[in-house]
């Protein structure tokens, strides 16, 4: 299992870290994301669901643990040059 510890990270860094982790998953590897902000939890959950992933959430004090047992591997190598308009 791969773990993203996004506790204390300002938005939208938890989502950026999650997106990055989705690029480097091994086949069959699950993904765990630790977040301590409700907004970040909502946004990351929505992003994962929008990409057809099922998210299980548990809470321990102020920390949320999002678990994706069957994550979708996302494309690698997002390069700034590919998006330059000038």
């Amino acid at each position: 299992m791969k773990t993203v510890n996004a506790q204390g990270m300002p938005c939208p860094l938890p989502l950026v870290m999650t997106r990055k982790a989705l690029e480097t998953l091994e086949k069959g590897e699950s993904l765990e994301i630790l977040i301590d902000s409700e907004n970040a939890r909502n946004n990351v959950t929505r992003f994962l669901q929008d990409h057809q992933m099922t998210v299980q959430t548990s809470q321990d004090g102020k920390m949320y643990r999002l678990l994706v047992e069957q994550p979708l591997k996302m494309g690698e190598d997002v390069r700034p040059e590919d998006y330059c308009t000038t």
Binding site: C11, P12, L15, V16, M17, N42, F47, V78
Partner: peptide, 9 residues
């Protein structure tokens, strides 16, 4: 990159 502000959601 996943840099999507909360307001967009």
């Amino acid at each position: 990159l996943g840099c999507i502000p909360g307001a967009a959601f």
